[in-house]
């Protein structure tokens, strides 16, 4: 595995190349994950007691496009404020960051916006348009984008797309037309153990992972991530997923909180579809 790691534990990020011009900058805790992610993992166990107790590490991904212009997708969280700047500094090698696209305003995705602005004074921050009251989210001077808007980087052309599964109202997804890179943000969050850090999905298979396991994990985790699905209709959700798959030619599946998928994409996307059907029909209780 070709990887460069910065920091350790809660500040740790790893950098891997997905294509010659697309980098993954990923955070997960590693060995001590149980000490930091225990509460989230407990929520998964609350949905399904059979959820793998050793899989208690959560991925936080940023993606960097290094083209004629440079663009970063999301900023990682507060504890990674130093390491993401270090990693960017090394990859950019003297160049500056032109664009920062924020998928949504939650801290694990947007916390380091201000420090990135300080490090790259000409940075243009891009985020979701069509709303109001941006000041309270700290985005008063961001450029607002609508679905269908594109960002030209040179060889890459990013398109802002309508998200299928949202939590925060200010959420967008993004698709790169030339490489088939799809970032579905919070959709498809899974969990991994300390032997599975920084792997791409096909490398997970060396540790016993599979589309089947992915389906089981997502059918639990996404009950927690998108609890509103308990009020949805399974046929409608599956139809929406089918329409989404038909519309976009996905060749790199790049979620914020799961392994990047570059091989066997149809198998993993089919697993994801089935998982979401199970999420909608899952029987679990909340604390009312």
């Amino acid at each position: 595995m070709n990887i460069k790691i910065y920091g350790e534990g809660i500040s740790r990020v790893g950098v891997r190349q997905i294509t010659p011009q697309i980098y993954l900058i990923s955070h997960c805790v590693g060995k001590a994950a149980a000490d930091f992610n225990g509460g989230f993992a407990a929520d998964f166990a609350r949905i399904n007691p059979n959820f793998d107790p050793s899989a208690n590490d959560i991925i936080y991904n940023s993606y960097l496009f290094v083209d004629e212009r440079t663009l970063l997708i999301d900023t990682l969280g507060p504890a990674q404020h130093g390491t993401i700047l270090e990693a960017l500094h090394d990859i950019l090698d003297g160049r500056s960051l032109d664009y920062l696209w924020i998928s949504h305003t939650e801290l694990p995705h947007a916390a380091n916006t201000a420090s990135l602005r300080r490090a790259h004074p000409n940075l243009q921050v891009l985020t979701v348009g069509g709303h109001d009251h941006y000041e309270i989210h700290g985005f008063e001077d961001a450029r607002l984008l609508d679905y269908g808007d594109t960002i030209e980087l040179g060889k890459h052309e990013l398109e802002i797309i309508k998200p299928m599964f949202v939590d925060h109202a200010l959420t967008q997804w993004i698709y790169e037309r030339k490489t088939g890179f799809m970032c579905p943000v919070d959709w498809a969050l899974n969990a991994h153990n300390e032997h599975q850090c920084f792997r791409f999905m096909h490398e997970m298979e060396e540790t016993g992972y599979s589309p089947e396991r992915f389906m089981h994990d997502i059918s639990v985790t996404n009950c927690v991530v998108f609890p509103w699905l308990r009020w949805a209709d399974p046929d409608q959700i599956v139809a929406a997923i089918d329409a989404f798959y038909a519309k976009y030619d996905i060749r790199i599946f790049a979620p914020s909180h799961a392994q990047v998928i570059v091989r066997d994409i149809p198998e993993y996307l089919a697993a994801l579809r089935e998982a979401m059907r199970r999420v909608v029909t899952a029987k679990y209780d909340l604390v009312y």
């Binding site: 930091f36 509460g39 929520d43 504890a79 694990p108 916390a111």
Partner: peptide, 23 residues
């Protein structure tokens, strides 16, 4: 208890400042 402080709380908040509420 479902909040992960290292990605969801400001970086300067120390572990000993935090208490968890369980649903």
């Amino acid at each position: 208890s479902a909040i992960l402080p290292h990605v969801e709380m400001p970086w300067w908040v120390k572990g000993e400042q935090i208490q968890y509420g369980h649903a």
